[in-house]
Nucleic acid binder design. Structure first.
Lengths: 196, 196
DNA sequence: ATAATTTTACCGACCGGTCGTTAGATTTCA
DNA sequence: TGAAATCTAACGACCGGTCGGTAAAATTAT
């Protein structure tokens, strides 16, 4: 926990996750960091900038993580499998930040809000492109691409709201279930219909 | 808008949806209702009781709606199709309340929190029972029932966070896409896939 | 090498304003 | 007339944020 600026961020992530952004006071953050609240303003110009800083780095990291994991894969189905795995893993590994990034956008100023939403949009587009390509190649269903992408993303993202690292299932197991469910859902499942 | 108690509730749903529970002040609610904020306390003992009242009626209604819609259906696949339709429709028709019910639980006292979570648990159980039965009958996959139920529910629920009644797609279309996606995802579709 | 200066990281005290809530007076209506 | 509904006025607590100041570390100048 090197420097104080990082510690404040770390403590804030914890508190915002537990109590929410609005229910967390600057005094709470200061207390958790072991400083006076005035000292927080030395490191961040405002409470809102602190929130923005958390959301920004989370969005940048998740996008970099996804891009890196699917780079080089050409097969569309394999791309989607990998993308889902990447999405689930990041959201469970960095659960708190991701939960905040999906629930505390209302705490942002309009300018910051726009920046984060734009980053999110770019992230979603990666999934939408894969779904689109899969549809064109006849591998995936041809339903509305945006709806499908929202479905896939929120499905995995929601894991961040109930997942407990010490719980019954590991990240691997959860990722495997989601991957299977989503690929099944995306595929045109009627070929084998005679087997019922 | 008959009596004031209902109007306050209606206005609060609107504001909690738009700005969030903590970011909405009692003054905001009073202003929207056309009364002084002290008058709100004649109808509700506290701001938190007002929130609880919203969440309670929403949960009671959604459960009644679901139970009613699947009663009498014996075929498991049809039960799931109907349950998904019911879930999606309720969440899009009463979008604001449902959004609040899924994002503002932190505003509750511990006692009220427990009551709402218990109601939610009962609702989830209905879906879990259907998945379980489908697994036993060999119709659905046999993966973890709870994970699958969370996946299905949050998928549909999330619609309440982006749906716009005036948007590109109707409730019917969205419900149809979700139904297809979920049933595909739940069915054992992997005979022809080969790649695991 | 050391004295002068600037920067870093923090503090306690305090600001104006808003919060949820209450007491008690007043109006509305059956 | 009496209860129901709403009002005005105020409460203490807390909010995010700012203030002037300070000890120590780092940098610069002599």
């Amino acid at each position: 926990m090197g420097n104080m600026k990082e510690k404040i961020k770390y403590v804030s992530i914890d508190l915002f996750f537990k109590k929410g952004y609005f229910a967390t006071s600057v005094s709470d953050i200061a207390r958790g960091s072991g400083i006076q609240k005035a000292s927080m303003y030395y490191h961040y110009p405002s409470k809102e900038e602190l929130l923005f800083s958390i959301l920004k780095s989370t969005m940048d990291d998740v996008t970099a993580y996804l891009k890196n994991s699917i780079s080089g894969i050409r097969n569309v189905e394999e791309q989607m499998r990998t993308a889902v795995q990447s999405h689930v893993r990041f959201h469970l590994d960095r659960q708190k930040e991701n939960f905040i990034a999906n629930s505390e956008l209302r705490g942002l100023t309009q300018d910051h809000y726009r920046i984060i939403v734009k980053k999110r949009y770019e992230y979603e587009r990666i999934f939408q492109n894969i779904i689109q390509k899969g549809g064109e190649q006849g591998i995936f269903v041809k339903d509305d691409v945006k709806i499908l992408s929202y479905a896939i993303l929120t499905l995995c993202t929601s894991g961040a709201s109930w997942f407990k690292p010490t719980g019954r299932l590991t990240v691997d197991e959860i990722a495997a279930i989601y991957e299977k469910f989503i690929i099944n859902g995306l595929k045109q499942g009627q070929v084998w219909s005679g087997a019922t």
